[in-house]
Amino acid sequence: MSVFKVIARCEETGARAGELYTPHGVVETPAFMPVGTRAAVKTMSPHELEFLGVQMVLGNTYHLYLRPGVDVVERAGGLHRFMGWRGGVLTDSGGFQVFSLAPFRRVTDEGVEFQSHLDGSRHFLTPEAVVSIQERIGSDVAICLDECVPYPATYDVSRKAVDRTIDWAVRSKAAHVKRDQLLFAVVQGSLFEEQRRRCAEELLAMDFPGYAIGGLSVGEPHEDMYGVLDLLNGILPQDKPRYLMGVGLPENILAAISLGVDMFDCVLPTRNGRHGSVFTSKGRINANASYFACDFSPLDADCDCYVCRHFTRAYIRHLLKAGEVLGVRLCTWHNLHFFADLVRKARRAIIDGRFMEFKRRFEDELKEELSS
């Protein structure tokens, strides 16, 4: 049985609605995965995430390896039992940390040597070790170790990273023995068409069950990101899931869905929520703003989430200004609902044959608010 099935396609774009089969249930795609780097989505309980309709969360191999440690998670019965989560879990390889923690690491063809940001201890992770860690903690989807380069990157720097990413994918696949865990390879290549194409084609020859798209949303213009996705939409197999790593803004997600992407993760809903920055159908608002002090309307009049049905902008602003953690939780709750609801509605629109109408309406409302 295939691990992924496309059940509907948009006739005008590359958008598709699908089903990803995992040991912890079916994930309906397009899907947004809240980031639970350290086995927790900040301020939210697993029960609340289920209430929001979240089907899969993301954890990070690098961070879980350092704390609490693989042995602890393994002894707890795996990551799902450790964190009390019944849905799917995708674990990133730590490849992005190779990119973001540049002062603390050294990359070689063999693997990555890094200094812990927690206690300064030194560690060396190979592609094989990263696969073993993800197998032991028991995620549903594991990601091969890859090398992400910054933007802008020179041709040669990107080429070397692609060479390593391909080599590490070969080694990762050879090391992977957990049959009920899906191992995704990562397509790198910065903004170089020839490198993206070569990386994708060499990874396709290895026949992974799914493919992640890395190295985007690192500072490049949105149109350049869409150009890479458009290229890969014509290369990556139509019968396998595609995961765009670390993206992003609602408008980015809808554009990527139209270019054939199925899975997304991003820290924006939780990170912005912690600062009172709220996503709405009319664009982002700052819930800390003084003009909300006596505004007794919901955060988003078009939203039916628990927060918007029960609380006002004035109350949430009061909580934030008073330093009450409930204010952060309510902003985060609403943001996560907004992202989960966005992809859920996009999926429904694809199935109903009206995805372009849905996308245009969302973009028009956003433009109207920005111009007002």
Rank of each mutant, 00 (worst) to 15 (best):
K173H: 06
K173L: 11
K173W: 01
A174E: 14
A174C: 07
A175Y: 01
A175W: 00
A175R: 08
H176Y: 06
H176C: 05
V177K: 15
K178I: 03
K178P: 06
R179F: 13
R179T: 15
D180K: 14
D180E: 15
D180N: 14
Q181C: 11
L182K: 10
L182W: 02
L182G: 14
L182A: 13
L183W: 05
L183G: 08
A185V: 10
A185T: 09
V186K: 10
V186N: 13
V186T: 11
V186F: 09
V187C: 06
V187N: 09
Q188F: 11
Q188G: 07
Q188D: 09
Q188R: 09
G189K: 09
G189Y: 04
G189V: 12
S190E: 12
S190G: 12
S190W: 05
L191V: 15
L191C: 12
F192S: 09
F192Q: 10
F192N: 11
E193P: 03
E194I: 08
E194P: 00
E194S: 13
Q195P: 01
Q195C: 05
Q195D: 04
R196S: 07
R196K: 14
R197C: 02
R198W: 14
R198V: 07
R198M: 13
R198H: 12
R198G: 02
R198D: 09
A200I: 00
A200Q: 02
E201H: 04
E201S: 04
E202A: 05
E202T: 04
L203F: 02
L204P: 10
L204W: 02
L204A: 07
L204F: 05
M206C: 06
M206E: 06
M206Y: 05
D207Y: 01
D207K: 02
F208R: 00
F208D: 10
P209S: 01
P209R: 00
G210Q: 00
G210N: 01
Y211A: 03
Y211N: 03
